[in-house]
Write a protein that binds this DNA or RNA. Structure first.
Lengths: 165, 165
DNA sequence: TTTGGCTGTCTTGATGTCAAGAGGCTTTAT
DNA sequence: ATAAAGCCTCTTGACATCAAGACAGCCAAA
């Protein structure tokens, strides 16, 4: 089956036959697939009344384990946004009753963001829904192929995750 | 080598041992790798004084072949942005002298966006630079592994590219 | 104890994007 | 010929994000 990247590569070979565009075969597909995944995730979360950024914050808290609380600083290192963005997000999640802000008993500058009961429920439901949708997307591949793909991707990602990038 | 997704999966297995989080092994790596690639691309383009979105528009025109012109409508289907965004982008690229707006001789509503000589030069330089950087990232893998990875990714992307998504 | 630097959160102002709609032009059907 | 419908680009207003800085509280060194 042909995809857009095949067409992209064909166009470059026609216009710039002097260039080796082989890298695009892998990396353009990664970028394009990620865009499609973003759209699919947005649709999956909409079923639970959540935006993607809400899912990111709620699941970071959920993964932290009981009592499901993290500081804004910890949240922003996990979600890779700036502090201003995180302030805004916590405001809105608190407005929806999914998290609450508590003073940090050990640091009076600090704040703790804690998942409410309904926030935890949303996070758990949305995660299950996401996994169901993603399983469908991956049905194109056998289990062995998925494992192989995961391994190859890990090799490409690991340098970014382990060297300060 | 371990990566962030391994840690993510481990956290979910601890908190939600009832769930099968296998899909994350592939799809979270795709999303995370795409984010890292965006940053790397931004850095590569900055060497040529270009933003990523400028590269996207200029290379779409470059790939169109002589005389390197497309309508705004064609550009927005290729770059997946809305018409308001494309108007804004064309304005700024025209301000930098990289493209020019011409009236469409066949449709008086229409406009043609054409690459200038300096725009074409920028596009060609930036593409070569991007490919050089991407080749380094892919040096983690053998040629055979790259081909295999490309093939697996194609299977996942193709449904999106061929069914209206 | 006091001083200086550092940390954690929030505020501010600018920017890029989107959704929705306006306006002019073209196409189709009557 | 004319009306209705559709298309193409641009404009407008709202919004999420970021970068930079403000401010309060912490901590280490003298």
């Amino acid at each position: 089956m042909e995809d857009e990247v095949d067409r992209l590569v064909a166009a470059w070979r026609r216009e710039r036959p002097d260039l080796d565009v082989q890298p695009l075969q892998v990396l353009s597909r990664v970028s394009r697939l990620a865009r499609h995944l973003d759209r699919a995730r947005r649709a999956a979360f909409a079923e639970h009344g959540l935006e993607p950024w809400e899912f990111d914050v709620l699941t970071a808290l959920r993964r932290a384990g009981h009592p499901y609380q993290l500081s804004p600083g910890q949240l922003l290192t996990q979600t890779l946004v700036t502090s201003g963005t995180m302030t805004n997000r916590i405001d809105r999640l608190a407005g929806k009753g999914l998290v609450q802000r508590l003073p940090d008993p050990d640091d009076r500058r600090g704040v703790l963001v804690r998942l409410t009961a309904s926030g935890q429920l949303k996070a758990d439901e949305a995660l299950a829904g996401l996994l169901a949708h993603e399983r469908e997307l991956l049905a194109e591949l056998t289990g062995g192929q998925q494992a192989e793909l995961a391994g190859l991707l890990r090799q490409l990602v690991a340098p970014f995750d382990n060297i300060p990038g």
